[in-house]
């Protein structure tokens, strides 16, 4: 790791922080511009009660002051109190939900990457054979299916008809189907990506050079080809993690998994503004961090990328 690289990482990091700040600011002001408030839903609360509640949560202060208070809270990972669940902070709710979501999302992503890269390489190495065609057929079929459709079908077949799995994600066994629903589409996409870039790389001059040097076939595949072929896959990992996390909002609802998606959806229904803001900022931050890491990884595997 050289100085140029450290410089790049620092620059990219500052840019990520700046983006997060923009997201916080926009979220904050949009939430405050939306008409209606959490205490309006409570029927016929007296003006005094509303005022008291507003004072309690600091909602009576000038908007800029509220903004700076909120911002300084967020820096300390404090998203304020939940307006719905009395006595519980938004941060606590996010952490509880995210533990589950990150668990199933992480496993789904890992499965998608490992199996996708494996199947893609196998298809490329066996180019134009029956095996290649079969892999391509299934990956083409699954790549276009959004996770909530896969989830509904899996639920119908394995929970309702066959009853092999419980229809809720409260037990470990119940998490298997949500994980599969989340991973199928990105896995298929990675399979196709790996296959086409491997085929492309195998035709390159430097592969011929390696062969002419006396390098063994599998070393050509795993050393000379795979690392080049993985560049597009690595670029896709960031967006994929983002999609697995957002995809989990619906999948968690379908399988009743107590993840961050469940809290997010119910916070919208409950008009729990603090919770909506907190979750939005938290999820976007996760996405930004993913993209940041993707950029760094991309740079590490692909030294040609210009650091400017």
């Amino acid at each position: 790791m050289n100085k140029k690289m450290l410089n790049y990482i620092l620059k990219r990091f500052l840019l990520a922080l700046f983006t997060i700040w923009i997201v916080i600011t926009i979220t904050f002001f949009i939430m405050h511009a939306v008409p209606g408030g959490p205490f309006l839903s409570e029927k016929a609360a007296s003006p005094e009660t509303t005022a008291a509640l507003q004072a309690k949560y600091g909602l009576d202060k000038p908007i800029l002051e509220q903004y700076f208070n909120y911002l300084s809270g967020v820096i300390k990972f404090d998203f304020g109190p939940s307006l719905k669940y009395k006595g519980i902070t938004v941060t606590e709710l996010i952490v509880t939900g995210f533990k589950t979501s990150a668990f199933i999302g992480g496993i789904a992503a890992l499965i998608a990457i490992l199996i996708g890269v494996f199947l893609g390489s196998i298809a490329a190495v066996n180019h134009k054979t029956k095996l290649d065609q079969a892999i391509m057929f299934f990956s083409t079929a699954f790549v276009a299916l959004p996770s909530f459709i896969t989830a509904s079908i899996l639920l119908l077949v394995f929970c309702v008809k066959l009853q092999w799995f419980p229809a809720n994600g409260l037990t470990t066994k119940g998490l298997i189907l949500p994980i599969i629903s989340l991973s199928l589409s990105p896995m298929s996409y990675i399979t196709r990506l790996t296959r086409s870039s491997t085929l492309d790389v195998m035709g390159q001059d430097y592969i011929r050079t390696a062969k002419a040097k006396g390098v063994n076939y599998w070393v050509i595949i795993f050393k000379h080809s795979l690392r080049n072929a993985l560049t597009p896959v690595i670029t896709y990992i960031g967006p994929m993690l983002a999609s697995v996390l957002t995809g989990s909002l619906v999948v968690e609802k379908i399988f009743t998994v107590a993840g961050i998606g469940k809290y997010f959806v119910s916070s919208i229904v409950n008009r729990d503004y603090m919770m909506i803001m907190g979750t939005t900022i938290f999820l976007t931050t996760i996405v930004i961090i993913m993209l940041f890491l993707t950029d760094i990884m991309y740079k590490i595997v692909n030294p040609r990328v210009d650091l400017e």
């Binding site: 430097y206 062969k211 040097k213 006396g214 030294p303 040609r304």
Partner: peptide, 21 residues
């Protein structure tokens, strides 16, 4: 055991003949 040890080859385009990574 022969390629690269007993018989070697260099190619027309050096820019694409080495592994970029």
């Amino acid at each position: 055991k022969i390629r690269g040890a007993k018989i070697s080859i260099i190619f027309q385009d050096p820019m694409t003949s080495l592994n970029p990574v």
